[in-house]
Amino acid sequence: MDYIRKANERGVVNMGWLQSNHSFSFGSYYDPQHMGVSVLRVINDDVVQPGAGFGTHGHRDVEIISYVIDGALEHKDSTGNEYVVPAGEVQRMSAGRGVMHSEYNASQTEPVNFLQIWIHPNVKGIEPEYEQKRIEQDGPLTPIVTPNGDKGALRINQDASMYRLELEKGEAYRLQTPDRQGYLHLVHGSAEINGDVFNAGDAIAPQVGKALDVNATEKLEALWFDLPKG
């Protein structure tokens, strides 16, 4: 059967400076029924208050994608990268054999909202890597991250891809990954999907090979993950 994750059922963390909704188990939030889908391990919907952020901490052997929705995110890491990632841009960091980094709200007056996405890599112990870019929408479904970084996308060390789906109200689109696992996370707007209503923050992973017929009931922005089966 389909895996459905509603926004209001996600794990909630409120630390004052950080408000976060966890689609899957993460940190102090643990639920064995929600440990990720295929190689997709984390989707945290983070809102960081002005001037605050995550102090220096380490990662290894994980692909981390930051998808900035509103505001701007300041990134620094132990390999010398120091960048601001504004809304509309996407960042990919391969932690590889180990990297230390920090992430802060780049603004002293406005919050930043971003999705922190973790994907298990298919190779370990590599040299850490960093990419960042703005990817313009080209049709309803645009590649954002792919294994080879083709068609202007960022590259990832895994047989997995992330696409941005954008539809105007009343438009429809069919999503399908034959013999693969799909996962759709709504960022903005709402849609009727295979007869059910989904809103911002909701997500669905259909049975392997099953199509999702997405009918936008409001202007829609969503992320579609094409993942290995199993």
Rank of each mutant, 00 (worst) to 15 (best):
K76W: 11
Q137H: 11
I117A: 02
E110H: 03
L40D: 00
G195W: 05
D196N: 14
V112H: 02
A87Y: 00
A191F: 08
L227P: 10
V39S: 13
H75Y: 09
V68H: 00
E110F: 03
A52N: 15
V145A: 01
S78I: 05
N194T: 11
S102L: 09
V84P: 05
A203W: 05
G11F: 07
L73I: 04
G58D: 08
G96K: 02
N21M: 12
F26C: 06
D202G: 09
E127N: 12
E110C: 00
G182V: 12
E103D: 08
Y3W: 07
G98W: 09
F26K: 03
L165R: 04
Y183P: 05
F26T: 04
Y67K: 00
E129S: 15
A205Q: 02
L18G: 12
A222I: 01
A153C: 11
T109M: 08
D179P: 12
I69V: 15
Q181C: 06
P121Y: 03
A106V: 08
K6V: 12
I4Y: 02
A95R: 03
Q158D: 05
E218A: 15
Q33W: 04
L73S: 07
S161P: 04
K124Q: 11
L186C: 09
Y130M: 06
T146S: 12
P111T: 03
I156W: 02
A7S: 14
L223S: 03
G53F: 06
I204N: 08
Y163F: 15
N113G: 09
L165S: 06
N148S: 14
G16D: 01
G182P: 14
V84M: 02
G96C: 11
V39I: 15
I69F: 04
F114E: 00
E127L: 09
I119S: 04
R97L: 05
R60H: 14
Q176L: 13
Y29P: 09
L167F: 04
T146M: 03
V85H: 05
A87P: 10
G139C: 08
R5V: 12
E221H: 06
G88C: 08
E9G: 15
R60L: 10
P228T: 02
G201P: 12
D159G: 10
T146I: 06
A7W: 10
R60F: 07
G201H: 11
G209Q: 05
S28F: 07
D45L: 06
I64F: 03
V90K: 03
I64S: 05
F114S: 01
L220C: 01
A172N: 14
W17R: 13
D31I: 09
D159R: 11
L220I: 00
R180T: 03
G27F: 04
Y130H: 14
A172Y: 04
R41V: 09
G152V: 10
S28W: 01
L115T: 07
H75Q: 02
E221V: 15
G80H: 04
L18P: 13
R41H: 09
T109K: 13
G125C: 01
P128S: 01
H59S: 05
P86A: 03
E110W: 00
E192V: 14
T79H: 10
G182S: 14
I204W: 09
A216E: 02
S94P: 11
M93Q: 02
S161M: 11
